[in-house]
Simulated assay, not measured.
Amino acid sequence: MSEQRLSFKEMCAEFDVTPRTLRYYEYIELLEPDREGRARFYGPRERARMTLIMRGRKFGFQLEEIRQWLLIYENEGTEAQLKAFVEMADRQTSALKEQRAQIDEALDELAQLRADILSNLG
């Protein structure tokens, strides 16, 4: 059974990214598609990496963090990569909680300002 490979256009469609994004991920060495002339093809490895990249972006990780994390797997294996992920997740969780606190504070202030204005109008 041969591995299914996606073309550049199919890869963009599968992950709902623009061609510019996909080319950029290649440029910064997150992805390394097979090349046949000018055509690019993405096999299971690149599709799995793209899944991890998209998940990392969803959680707010920077692309360089994701790149370094993917390199850990290649250089040190699964266990080291999982340990690195736990550390990354802890840092990101703290950052997201801080952002949430700032957003909650801004929402409270905005609601209070709105209420003050309404009371002055009426």
Rank of each mutant, 00 (worst) to 15 (best):
P33Q: 00
P33L: 00
D34I: 13
D34V: 15
D34R: 15
R35C: 06
E36M: 14
E36H: 11
G37D: 02
R38S: 12
R38M: 07
R38Q: 10
A39Y: 15
A39W: 06
A39D: 04
A39G: 00
A39Q: 12
R40E: 08
R40D: 09
F41R: 06
F41A: 02
F41M: 09
R45F: 05
R45A: 06
E46L: 01
E46C: 03
E46D: 15
R47W: 15
R47Q: 15
A48M: 13
A48R: 13
A48D: 12
A48T: 10
A48G: 11
R49E: 07
R49Q: 10
M50I: 06
M50Q: 08
T51L: 10
T51A: 11
T51Q: 12
T51G: 04
L52N: 11
L52D: 03
L52E: 14
L52F: 11
L52Y: 12
L52V: 04
I53K: 00
I53C: 03
I53Q: 00
M54P: 11
M54H: 12
M54K: 12
M54I: 14
M54N: 14
M54R: 15
R55P: 02
R55A: 02
R55S: 02
R57G: 02
R57A: 01
K58F: 07
K58T: 13
K58Q: 15
F59T: 13
F59Y: 08
G60I: 02
F61D: 00
F61E: 08
F61H: 05
Q62A: 14
Q62K: 14
Q62E: 14
L63D: 07
L63Y: 09
L63H: 01
E64D: 15
E64I: 10
E65C: 02
E65R: 03
I66M: 03
I66D: 00
I66F: 03
I66H: 03
I66W: 01
R67W: 06
R67I: 02
R67M: 09
R67C: 09
Q68M: 04
Q68K: 11
Q68W: 01
Q68P: 02
W69S: 04
W69N: 01
L70V: 02
L70Y: 04
L70P: 07
L71N: 12
L71R: 09
L71P: 06
I72D: 00
I72M: 00
Y73S: 03
E74F: 03
E74A: 06
E74Q: 09
E74I: 05
N75Y: 05
N75I: 01
N75M: 05
N75P: 00
N75S: 12
N75W: 08
E76F: 05
E76T: 03
E76Y: 02
E76I: 11
T78F: 09
T78H: 13
E79Q: 15
E79N: 04
E79M: 14
A80T: 06
A80N: 08
A80H: 07
A80Q: 10
A80C: 04
Q81I: 09
Q81P: 10
Q81T: 11
L82H: 11
L82A: 14
K83G: 10
K83M: 12
K83F: 13
A84C: 05
A84F: 04
A84E: 11
A84T: 05
A84P: 11
F85Y: 15
F85N: 02
V86G: 01
E87S: 08
E87W: 06
E87I: 04
